[in-house]
Design a protein around this nucleic acid. Sequence first.
RNA 1: GCCCUCGUAGCCCAACGGCAGAGGCAGGCGACUUAAAAUCGCUGUGUUGCGGGUUCGACUCCCGUCGAGGGCACCA
Length: 954
Amino acid sequence: MSDTEHGHRYTAELAGQIEKQWQDVWEEQGTFEAPNPTGPWADPQGVAEREKVMIQDMFPYPSGAGLHVGHPLGYIATDVYARYQRTQGKNVLYTLGYDAFGLPAEQYAVQTGQHPRKTTEDNMVNMRRQLRQLGLSHDMRRTFATIEPSYYKWTQWIFLQIFNAWYDEDAGKARPIDTLVEALESGRVATPDGRAWAELNATERAAAVNARRLAYKSDAPVNWSPGLGTVVANEEVTADGRTERGNFPVFKRNLPQWMMRITAYADRLVDDLERLDWPESIKLQQRNWIGRSNGASIRFDVENHEGAQLEVFTTRPDTIFGATFMVVAPEHPLVDTLVPDTWPEGTKDAWSGGATSPREAVDTYRREASRKSDLERQTGEKGKTGVFTGAFATNPVTGRRMPVFVADYVLMGYGTGAIMAVPAQDERDWDFAAAYDLDVIRTVQPSEGHPENKPFTGAGVAINSATSGLSLDGLGIEDAKVKIIEWLEANERGSGTTTYRLRDWLFSRQRYWGEPFPVVYDENGEAHALPESMLPVELPDVADYSPKTYDPEDAQSMPESPLSRASEWVSVELDLGDGRKTYTRETNTMPNWAGSCWYELRYADPANDERFVDTGCEEYWLGKGRGFGKGVANDPGGVDLYVGGAEHAVLHLLYARFWHKVLFDLGLISSEEPFRKLYNQGMVQAYAYRDGRGQPVPAAEVTEREVDGETVFEWQGERVTREYGKMGKSLKNVVTPDEMCDAFGADTFRVYEMSMGPLDASRPWETRAAVGSQRFLQRLWRNVVDEGSGEVTVTDAPMDDATKRALHQTIDAVSADFENLCFNTAVARLIELNNTLTKLDAVPREAAEALVLMTAPLAPHIGEELWKRLGHDTTLAFEPFPVADPAFLVQDTVVAVVQVAGKVRDRLDVAADISEADLEAAAMASERVQSFLEGKTVRKVIVRAPKLVNIVAN
RNA sequence: GCCCUCGUAGCCCAACGGCAGAGGCAGGCGACUUAAAAUCGCUGUGUUGCGGGUUCGACUCCCGUCGAGGGCACCA
């Protein structure tokens, strides 16, 4: 800066100095440390009678690439909000930890040949630096990383609570496992095979108990991804049968894995969504994922197979009169027993698939189906294929003979893997019936004009639905369902049922970089939970932490845990109550979701080494009816505001709710939900440019100009094409917060991020537009400080009336905007007020101080600096937010609009409290209005005093 | 295919069913400057994507349609 005349101008350089200085002050003084009511950090006096608010971001994964300008959007928003809440006298819990276990860390470590702990810790150092320079008001005492043994000790401890619990359907909640033993003893809960508890031996008893644990070992089909080298949960598999991370094929394999009985909570996870203040789209995604559907299970007799019944699930039992055939999944266990040796009488040509026997046809079809991956089965052309099994079932209502088909459009994993097909009211069944020459009987009256050649899936009354003793005819769908279910139950042919799409959560991974399970196996392979005293089970250092991966298509490969190679660690001598014995450790690790399933609880009391969270702290920060839950009926408790991306709709957010509910059931916490209010911030997107070969070119070097009225983009003189999407290294369009802080300062960066648009909207990044935010702060600075001398220039003279009104209207609007997370409009109003002050000869101190206080949540460093220069010697963090005086919000006179037939024809200055009659009279008296009314008859006059009159005339 | 969100000035975006424009970017004009940058001041005429409907009055509510983004997808 050679410009000595403006030696005190608010430049990026000066901003940088101020920012660094205030960040140091906040850290030294512990400005943002929030007192706790109880526990190791008890400070009841600090808590006193203040209201609390807990604000939380979805914590980041510390990636090697560092942050780009999109990442801090949510953090800045929560920081502005947290700072605003402090000015409302609230005790604010606001901090940020690191989700530091997981696949990417391990992959990055493998790539760079370093230990994951080393790379993860390095990345966290870098990320802490990046976040610190933004001036986020985190309580730094409360930060932690999920990889710290002092944290994952409690992750393991919670696993043990879940392992040592079962879901008591009668009580509608999880209970400790010893109550299961009582229930089994008393016969209230049946043993797996129905025998009395007293008749079971020790092994059988253990198995009976294990079968009901909330965390259990199962050998069911799981998603095995050879290319990734691990199994993954259903939630981590995309619709086309690939892993969400890495995009590798997934194969169903029976493998012994740990599962979490999240299905026990299906109803509560759906129902309690109504108690949450969450975006509807996220609630909808959770509802869809859980997929609760009500219907009936119905048992069908099979001809020539005494006792063999085919059980189906249907949501439309009311259409049973229209069921003309049945379909079972290729994997259905009954298929083998159903298939006869020869084609029975009545087999149509289309049914046999050209095979000489049902056995041959079914075997061929099943073989082909099994060769298809899930991908092919689901995304292949929607034409229905299948083959007749040679068996007939009997419709229990009509007595009709119904051929039984095998077809892969029925999935073994949903319902019972078998359906009654009702082509008239189901598109899939219609397509199949059309392809295989099967009968269609309409049993719901289609709406008028419904095409003959299409199934009718809408609402209507039942037709063709009567036999002797039962008639649904004339009933609507819901009534018909009730009646048929009554009939089915009375005749023991079926019953009303609810099914879910949700499956239990696959909870083990063949990875190194995760929480070890607190589980060992004895010589019989029996799993034993370790006692709390042996926690944490620390992750051993190993030479080779890389997962064993295979050819992505090698479905027959076997997963191998990296920890299984740590033989010294795996074999361990312990006394678990039966004397010292050698045990084998579980070598799988927990999925990276585990650490984020309960971190909100730990934030409340992170120093506690006696308990995962002190009960008083949990109740204070997350308890029901507190914070934003105050006065809310049926409030479930939880974090007051949780901000993060929408991509975690059914993964993290579902898992965390599940764990929270288990902990609640076991009486360990008082809140029923982890996150009371959820807000999804939008994505910062960016333009990327490619050259003629399709290679991305550095976006920052691309120039733009007009050619023949068309905008063209060029890089090094060459035309390039523009596309719009995410910011990423490979697209060469990354802008980092570091660059922004260097070029403009952190406060400008923060204001720009907040001013770009509504927080929940995605928006394109445009670095050069940030100068607008810089100009705002420069003008604010200049309204207080003389650029040449550095002297404070505000005047102590009273404000004029117009300024006073402008100030109080801004206060009123900005408080509401902050309250509602509308930071873009808050910035606009602050700029407006600032521009108003700029036009004055001298800025009144009262206005300047209020403006500084209002701007400070957005731009805290310049706020503190100006506050100090204005003569205050303590932080403004806890200064009360300015309060609007209603006296200055109302205008004495307002401009009333007079419309004739909806078009504005005149404007009148009228008193703000003018009566409707007076306003109407004034409007009618207007000459301009009269000129428009000439030759017309006034039909009606609408008066909305004091702002509007609309005269309807023709 | 179904569901959700969103379409306003060249761009990003405001606007309790009541005057289409708060704020910013870009552009234009002017001031300052030997000049340029920076800075400061001034500067907004548009099919509110399109077509219907409700209403005295529609960017706003309803129906249809087109486009963009996201989610689900043979779930019985």
